[in-house]
Design a protein around this nucleic acid. Structure first.
Length: 316
RNA sequence: GCCGAGGUAGCCAAGGUGGUCACGGCGGAGGUCUGAAAAACCCCAGAUGUCAGUUCGACUCUGACCCUCGGCA
């Protein structure tokens, strides 16, 4: 298996296509945004059969996978991703082809390659209940459930409501089953789940799945310096605006999707919606879009560089 | 030229009757990360337009100058 990851706007797709030709491969998406249907221009979805012809996909045989996989209103976690991608990898291998994962969502990759350490599924009702609580309140709730769990958190996580809520979620599930850290799905009655809240995959009962094979080559692309990075992102944003980025957002909104939907909580969409709602000028929105994307690229590298399995290639 | 308002970090900006002054936000640097991740969060650096005066002490008071904005001409 080959993995092409790295910073945004580094030409991952292009490299992946080269590898696909060379090694008789099939491309599998590992981009948490291109997973979503209808998010095309702004996510830079070059490979979807919906937005490009087979020829434009540079003659790659067979299909590409996990593009346009879910609708923008749906919740889709790294767990869901791992479950879905494992099946596809298996299938590709069965056909004697090389799976080639492309995308910069390292959080997904990390879980795929190195597994999870808990099997507690999301409890959306609980999340909703806790979402407007202050961090102090969340601290107290967690401490009451399990002080050790709280003490193990670092300063960053302790101030992060989402991480706190997740911990509470885990501890609550543990309380229910009496097994530390290993909960069972906290079964929401299916009919009461909000629209964006379906659990696509339940935890399997046989523990963490084995890796999709210990053998993988992971290549990370990144820019040599920030100036180049910013430049590349800027031209890419301008290109996407020309391609109709604003129109894309308008259509999504017309379709009924909202800025709070998981798919639209994405760089580019958020800034354009701000503009369309009249909160900023177009110029400001574009600047913010570029800045947000640069910041994201830096965060990506900060996260990825801890993984010693990544073979870095510098773009200059 | 006159009248008015104002000059506080790269940008936006709060302040107080002289006392180590210096709130924030954005941006920048560096981080966190095990079922929300293009998310969420932590953390660090950085400033009083210029020159003089008053004073033990001036970002704060006085004067001049420079610059910006608005109005009048």
């Amino acid at each position: 298996m080959i993995i092409i990851t790295g910073q945004t706007a580094t030409g991952k797709t292009k490299l992946a296509l080269e590898y696909a030709k060379k090694y008789n491969g099939e491309l599998i998406n590992c981009d948490s945004r291109q997973i979503y249907k209808y998010l095309d221009i702004i996510t830079g979805k070059d490979l979807s059969p919906r937005v490009s012809s087979r020829a434009e996909r540079s003659g790659v045989e067979g299909s590409v996978w996990l593009y346009d996989f879910i609708k923008p209103y749906k919740y889709f976690s790294s767990f869901d991703y791992v479950k879905a991608v494992q099946n596809i990898i298996k299938d590709v291998k069965k056909r004697r082809k090389t799976p080639i994962l492309v995308g910069g969502s390292y959080f997904y990759l990390k879980h795929l390659l190195y597994g999870f350490d808990t099997k507690v599924p999301p409890n959306f009702r609980l999340r909703e209940k806790l979402n407007n609580k202050t961090v102090e309140k969340l601290h107290n709730i967690l401490k009451k459930l399990n002080v050790k769990s709280f003490n193990q958190m670092n300063n960053s996580d302790r101030n992060n409501p989402r991480r706190l809520i997740r911990k509470i979620e885990i501890e609550k599930a543990a309380k229910k089953t009496g097994v530390e850290g290993k909960g069972v799905p906290d079964g929401l009655p299916a009919g009461r789940q909000a629209r964006s809240r379906e659990v696509l995959f339940e935890a399997s009962t046989d523990g963490n799945e084995p890796e999709t094979g210990p053998v993988f080559l992971m290549i990370g692309l990144r820019y040599k310096n920030k100036e180049k990075l910013r430049e590349a992102i800027k031209t890419r944003v301008e290109k996407r605006l020309k391609q109709g980025a604003i129109k894309e957002v308008e259509l999504l909104l017309k379709k009924g999707y909202q800025k709070t939907d998981p798919g639209l909580k994405t760089i580019g969409y958020q800034q354009i919606i701000d503009y369309l709602e009249g909160n900023t000028t177009k110029k400001q929105a574009i600047e913010k879009w570029i800045t947000a994307e640069v910041q994201y690229a830096k965060r990506q590298y900060t996260f990825m560089k801890k993984d010693k399995n990544i073979k870095w290639r510098l773009i200059s």
